[in-house]
């Protein structure tokens, strides 16, 4: 009897200690960055699991590529060729414009814009916390991907890197409730911040002045403020404008350009250190 009582007491003590440890861990993790190293190390041990889980998807892709018929490949090829021709034509125009731009900037005496460096990455098919909008990509610090780098797909901004491990990185999507993207309306030049709300097809822009010049269909790009996202990448299109006249504000709902729920290949933009 005494022994049983003793055991219960030990278990209770251990529980209390562990509960305190957990709460301390959570507070430290939430407020400071000291635990990043711990997280990275545990992630490194678990990375085989992640690859194992995304293996079926990878094999699936490989198999579809392998079994694509000759005709389909020919079709693809001719389509891609015409696409390349089109893009090349556009690029020629771009080069001229770029040159003109630098010349004008030189005339004005402002600093020249630099091209961004990018790393191509693929998504790992791994499900994360259902309460949050996180994705895992297959490039990490070994490839130069680091915390704070912007992630885009071929349509627009997707998010930014929040944890970087050696060979993988966790990316927060712009639609996560915890994420805010500094944006600018192209047409009117109004600057604001777009918040995620947990849906992959919506961004909220709150508290715009009632006099702001906004119309449905306006395009939003990154403003470059805050230093995380490079300027002028497409973010979203305005779809709903709600006026709250009692408070004198306008709130806007916008549809993200990037295919947040279906893109598989992404680009990580490495900012240049000046």
């Amino acid at each position: 009897m005494k022994q049983v009582l003793n055991q219960t007491r030990v278990a209770t003590m251990h529980t209390l200690i562990l509960v305190c440890v957990c709460i301390t861990l959570m507070i430290v993790d939430h407020r400071f960055n000291h635990l990043e190293a711990v997280r990275t190390n545990i992630s490194l041990i678990l990375s085989p699991l992640r690859y194992l889980v995304s293996l079926p998807a990878l094999t699936g892709n490989w198999a579809t590529e392998w079994f694509t018929s000759h005709n389909e490949l020919l079709d693809d090829n001719s389509y891609l060729r015409s696409e390349v021709r089109l893009l090349n034509a556009r690029l020629q125009k771009m080069e001229v414009l770029e040159e003109e731009n630098t010349r004008l900037r030189n005339l004005l005496g402002s600093s020249a814009k630099l091209a961004d460096q990018v790393v191509v990455a693929e998504l790992l098919s791994v499900d994360q916390n259902p309460y949050r909008q996180l994705i895992e990509i297959n490039r990490g610090t070994a490839d130069g991907v680091n915390i704070g780098h912007a992630v885009i797909d071929d349509f627009g901004i997707m998010g930014q890197v929040v944890h970087a491990n050696r060979h993988s990185a966790t990316t927060i999507l712009i639609s996560d409730p915890d994420h805010a993207t500094p944006i600018q309306f192209i047409r009117s030049g109004v600057r604001s911040v777009a918040f995620g709300n947990g849906n992959t097809d919506q961004l909220d822009i709150r508290y715009l002045p009632a006099t702001a010049d906004i119309r449905i269909g306006d395009e939003l790009v990154t403003s470059g403020l805050g230093g995380r996202f490079p300027a002028d990448y497409p973010v979203a299109t305005v779809s709903v404008i709600r006026e709250d006249l009692t408070r004198g504000f306008v709130s806007v709902v916008a549809i993200p350009k990037a295919r947040l729920d279906s893109s598989r290949e992404v680009l990580v933009i490495k900012p240049r250190i000046e």
Binding site: V19, I23, T24, L25, M26, D29, I42, V126, Q128, N129
Partner: peptide, 24 residues
């Protein structure tokens, strides 16, 4: 719990706390 937290990208200790409590 710590392993689950790392995998899910939650706060370190979140799942750990929940699991320790039900384990108790």
């Amino acid at each position: 719990g710590l392993l689950v937290d790392t995998l899910h990208g939650t706060l370190l200790g979140q799942n750990a706390l929940a699991l320790v409590i039900i384990m108790f």
